[in-house]
Amino acid sequence: MGITSAIVLYAVIWWMTLLCVVPVRLRTQQDMGKVTPGTQSGAPEVHHLKGKVIITTGIATVLFAIAAGIILSGWISIADLDWFGRMDTPYPT
């Protein structure tokens, strides 16, 4: 795995983790009982975004370390993911 693919893998894991963490402890305007006229009642009132970014970074770092370890160790390779037998036939020249 090259440096570019490692950065892309970390970014994908980080954003997926953030999208899973954002709804946790989210307080909407409707939950707080203070809906501002002209806004949706489901709009966030208290979002705790700074803490969620820190939690996301920690979780994403652990998940990235696991994924990078599996990829770099060779425990799972592209040949293991060849479900349709495409690696068995030579490529046309």
Results as ranks from 00 to 15, higher is better:
Gly2Asp: 12
Gly2Ala: 05
Ser5Val: 03
Ala6Gln: 09
Val8Asn: 00
Leu9Pro: 02
Tyr10Ile: 00
Tyr10Phe: 15
Tyr10Lys: 07
Val12Pro: 03
Trp14Val: 00
Met16Ser: 10
Leu18His: 04
Leu19Thr: 06
Leu19Pro: 01
Val21Met: 12
Val22Ile: 15
Val22Lys: 01
Val22Ala: 08
Pro23Phe: 12
Val24Pro: 05
Leu26Lys: 08
Thr28Cys: 04
Gln30Tyr: 14
Asp31Thr: 12
Val35Ser: 06
Thr36Ile: 15
Pro37Met: 02
Gly38Lys: 03
Ser41Gln: 13
Glu45Val: 06
Val46Thr: 09
His47Cys: 12
Lys52Thr: 03
Val53Ile: 12
Ile54Thr: 10
Thr56Met: 12
Gly58Ala: 12
Gly58Ser: 05
Val62Asp: 00
Val62Arg: 02
Val62Pro: 06
Leu63Asn: 02
Ala65Arg: 06
Ala65Trp: 11
Ala65Thr: 12
Ile66Gln: 00
Ala67His: 03
Ala67Leu: 13
Ala68Met: 10
Gly69Met: 07
Ile71Trp: 08
Leu72Met: 10
Ser73Cys: 02
Ser73Glu: 03
Gly74Thr: 00
Gly74Ile: 02
Gly74Ala: 06
Ile76Asn: 06
Ala79Glu: 04
Leu81Gln: 06
Trp83His: 04
Met87Asp: 01
Asp88Met: 04
Pro90Trp: 08
Tyr91Arg: 13
Tyr91Val: 11
Tyr91Pro: 03
Pro92Ser: 13
Pro92Lys: 07
Thr93Val: 15
